[in-house]
């Protein structure tokens, strides 16, 4: 059991290569919690912007008639990975975790696995 701040701190500390993490409500675009980031990388701006990514994907899936649920969305830049994980718990419906990774140091499979564990810790 963890509160939001502890869970986000844990994500930043335990996930290799993580430089920022945010917990975001994708309807309002509000970051309910952020950890890390920098002056040149504003996590609240990233949070609000990435709600459009999630919404576009959800709409596309409706267009295609896909019934599956999105687990995560991966965006790779030449030097970063951005990982979006949609929370599925009853209380977490409508939220996603947003993780920024340094691609030189990160292990993607491991990061995905750990992000899932953070979600379980939040118990949402």
């Amino acid at each position: 059991m963890a509160n939001t701040e502890t869970a986000l701190k844990e994500a930043l500390a335990s996930i290799e290569g993580a430089t920022g993490v945010a917990l975001v409500d994708y309807t309002s675009g509000m970051a309910l919690g952020t950890m890390g980031g920098s002056k040149s990388f504003d996590l609240t701006v990233a949070a609000a912007g990435n709600t459009d990514v999630v919404r576009a994907k959800l709409r596309t899936m409706e267009h295609l008639g896909l019934k599956g649920q999105i687990e995560d969305i991966l965006i790779t830049l030449n030097d970063q990975y951005h990982l979006i994980r949609l929370l599925t718990g009853r209380g977490g419906n409508g939220l996603f975790l947003y993780l920024v990774l340094d691609s030189k140091r990160a292990n993607l499979a491991m990061a995905r696995h750990q992000l899932k564990k953070i979600e379980e810790d939040l118990e949402v």
């Binding site: 059991m1 963890a2 509160n3 939001t4 869970a7 917990l23 409500d25 309002s28 509000m30 309910l32 718990g89 209380g91 977490g92 939220l95 810790d121 939040l122 118990e123 949402v124």
Partner: peptide, 16 residues
């Protein structure tokens, strides 16, 4: 009855 994280998130959602 509820996890601390879950209460906090729902509370923040309701508050804003």
């Amino acid at each position: 009855r509820i996890g601390e994280g879950a209460l906090e998130l729902c509370h923040l959602g309701a508050l804003y």
